[in-house]
Amino acid sequence: MPLGRLAEPAEIASVVEFVLSADSSFMTGSVLVADGGYTAR
């Protein structure tokens, strides 16, 4: 469901923070899309 708005910088920063953290250590070869649902249309 598209959110219908642009992301706030803090929202994108949260995604980057997750990818750089130990919480994502088990992820391999994944593509994370942080587009507010735009590609889900």
Rank of each mutant, 00 (worst) to 15 (best):
T28F: 09
L20K: 09
S24H: 09
S21P: 03
E11W: 01
I12Y: 08
R41P: 05
G4I: 00
G37V: 02
T39K: 09
S30D: 10
D23C: 06
F26W: 13
Y38G: 04
F18Q: 03
M27A: 15
V16M: 05
A10N: 12
L20W: 02
A13Q: 11
L6S: 12
I12K: 03
S21C: 02
A22Y: 05
G4P: 00
S30C: 13
G4C: 00
S14Y: 06
S30F: 11
A13V: 11
A40N: 08
S30Q: 15
M27K: 01
Y38F: 07
L6C: 10
E17V: 05
L20A: 10
S21D: 04
S21A: 00
S21W: 03
E8V: 09
E17M: 07
E17K: 10
S21T: 01
G29A: 10
A13P: 07
A22C: 07
G37T: 01
A7R: 03
M27F: 15
S24P: 12
R41A: 08
L6A: 13
P9T: 00
A13N: 11
R41W: 06
S24L: 06
P9V: 01
E17R: 09
E17I: 02
D35T: 06
A10H: 14
D35W: 01
I12G: 06
V19H: 14
R5Y: 07
S25T: 12
S25N: 13
L32W: 12
V19R: 13
E11R: 04
A7N: 06
D23P: 03
V19Y: 09
S30T: 10
E11A: 05
D23T: 11
M1R: 14
D23M: 14
S21V: 04
A40I: 07
D35Q: 05
V31A: 15
G36Y: 08
E17L: 10
A13F: 09
A13G: 13
T39G: 11
L6F: 13
R41K: 07
P9C: 00
G37I: 01
A10C: 07
S25W: 07
V16L: 08
R41H: 09
A34I: 01
S14L: 11
I12N: 03
L32H: 13
A13K: 09
P9H: 01
V33I: 11
R41E: 02
E8R: 12
S25R: 13
M27E: 08
F18Y: 10
T39H: 14
G29R: 07
T28V: 15
V19G: 06
M27W: 11
R5F: 04
E17W: 05
E8K: 12
R41S: 06
V19L: 15
P9E: 01
A22M: 04
Y38M: 03
V15A: 12
A7P: 08
L20G: 08
S30A: 14
L3V: 03
V15E: 11
D23E: 14
F26L: 12
